[in-house]
Design a protein around this nucleic acid. Structure first.
Lengths: 340, 340
DNA sequence: TTGTAGGCGTTATCAT
DNA sequence: ATGATAACGCCTACAA
């Protein structure tokens, strides 16, 4: 028993005008006289008119909607990035459809297809752990629907990506541990196909090499980087001989889970083992000792990604398709790694 | 230079059929012969056809889209709730538009209007801190667009709400502190117009009364419940005479921020002061001592809310508009409050 | 400055 | 089992 919707026809009839004039007035077209425009706007408000976006989109062949695909929104970084994207979308009058791939390439592909069918004007993506085949983005490229990747990207895709220099960040984090006197440094990371993890690992390796420390594959542990996984890492660390004296995690949650477990086992941090995380999640200032970590700006990254996408849509941006935007990051030194 | 979209006309022309038949085949209408159906489906796939949802929605007068308004998605609880909502929406073939009010009633109202104009089929809402005027939901009620509120609700709105018994949870948390021997218990909460905070406060008061402890307004502190606000709370606690010996926070983040600051100031937890939080955020198991807290199921709540909304849309649910669904919660006792 | 009319891609009703 | 056709509500040449 839904009440009938008011259309421009109703307004036109009410005011004895043509729908064309009404339509124009509603669009705030300068060609309509001030007087009739006011009459129309008032009537529209009074009658409870709301534009029918389907009719509009159908006619205009665009949706004013952006799709967003992210692995999960359960991290501080992702929340911030989404908030950034949203703020820009709001400013520019775009709607957002946000979906989570849950770190599954299958879900990612199905979401991509779904958003494509919904004719999003553009797509923002942060890739799942294990996506290696990017054919689900092909339809977008074929139809010239712009794509922007952020944080979790891939160089083989011909699209703009916005991220930090993960290799350098990994290098910086590892070197910091080395400078604190660590000689046997473990690196904990996730599925290594994803750029962020591959690059951080590379940075770790380069730092070791640069300081004449041996690289040992056994010292690289792989898991899903959850807090629970950190507990498992603690067990592994305890089983290693000789004892590692430093560990660089590819995210804070896992680092924190591990720290709690290690302390329970009687290890002293940073004396027995120095720890560095990644992301600067709020939890880094809760764990004791506070966690040294790499900070990078999720909100800014989100804003930038959205802005870039919208500029591309407006044609106001001369898009160089294969470009890459690197944001600044920062090593935040706290007590978990400082041995004075 | 967007390539042309394939429509049912194109398919019809290609196969020398009418658009009606093509449309029916695409809908998998049983009236179309198996043979032609296959022919059409194959052609559609080969030609890269995708349904135009605008044309479809325009015709069908529904969007298959649900709106979601939440205060912020930066908490573990909200992430879980959204994940729950999303899983149901996916199963049932609904799209989601998620927006954040950023705890501002103005933003909430503007989002509500925007989603209304986008003709969402239904709306899921968790209210901002300070919303007291609910007129922005009136258009939905007038047009019979179903509303479901979850977690942050209000009894004066004539719509289904899904939440926990916050009064009882507040009572349980406070009584736990009392049973641990606390006599001067502080309660830290947020803007008190919101049900979740009002009710937890009521529970706190009832527990005090039930155990013949005096209620003192000075012992109720109000802030935005952020981790940083917890630091301020620590200062306040230190300035109180006599010293409080227990504190019940309306969320974990604030509790954790406060604990860290208190420990820095030399207070022993739980000996000097016992602490209870709310939400069972992962950070509760990171802070030391681990935080006693109230657990309640965000994912389930999200699923339930979405299911309820969709059932209402399908008419498969006999909707009693003014009903309320209470989920179970649980007090999880950890070391921050146990004095043996 | 305003009006007329065609078309955007579907679905559904009525014929055939 | 299939086809013709009229909406759905909006925008925009083109005309007046």
């Amino acid at each position: 028993m839904k009440s009938k919707e008011v259309t421009i026809y109703d307004i036109a009839r009410e005011l004895n005008l043509s729908i064309a004039t009404v339509s124009r007035a509603l669009k705030n077209d300068s060609v309509v006289s001030k007087k009739t425009k006011k009459k129309i706007l008032d009537a529209a408000a009074a009658m409870g008119y709301r534009t029918n976006h389907f009719a509009r989109n159908l006619r205009l062949q665009r949706t004013n909607t952006l799709g967003v695909i992210i692995p999960r929104l359960n991290s501080y970084f992702m929340s911030s990035a989404i908030a950034g994207i949203e703020s820009v979308a709001n400013e520019k009058g775009y709607n957002l459809i946000i979906s989570q791939s849950s770190e599954s390439k299958l879900q990612e592909a199905s979401i991509a297809q779904n958003l494509f069918n919904h004719r999003v004007d553009g797509l923002l993506v942060s890739l799942a752990y294990d996506t290696t085949d990017y054919s689900h983005f092909l339809p977008y490229q074929n139809k010239n629907v712009p794509l922007v990747f952020f944080d979790r990207t891939d160089d083989t895709i011909d699209a703009t990506s916005i991220l930090i220099d993960n290799e350098l960040a990994g290098y910086t984090a590892t070197e910091h541990l080395i400078l604190q006197g660590c000689k046997r440094i473990v690196h904990v990371t996730a599925h290594s196909v994803r750029n962020v993890y591959q690059d951080r690992l590379k940075g770790y390796q380069r730092a070791l090499a640069h300081h004449q420390l041996p690289f040992n594959e056994q010292m690289v542990l792989t898991n899903n980087l959850s807090q629970e996984a950190g507990i498992k890492v603690a067990e592994l660390l305890q089983s290693m001989h000789p004892r590692p004296d430093g560990v660089f995690f590819a995210n804070d949650n896992c680092a924190v889970g591990c720290m709690v477990a290690l302390k329970k086992a009687g290890w002293k941090i940073p004396e027995d083992i120095a720890v560095v995380g990644f992301n600067n999640d709020p939890v880094a200032t809760v764990v004791e000792p506070n966690l040294t970590t790499i900070h990078y700006p999720g909100h800014t990254m989100g804003r930038l990604a959205a802005n870039h996408l919208i500029s591309t849509l407006n044609g106001s941006y001369t898009l160089n398709n294969a470009n890459k935007l690197l944001l600044r990051f920062e090593l935040i030194i706290r007590d978990s790694s400082t041995r004075t």
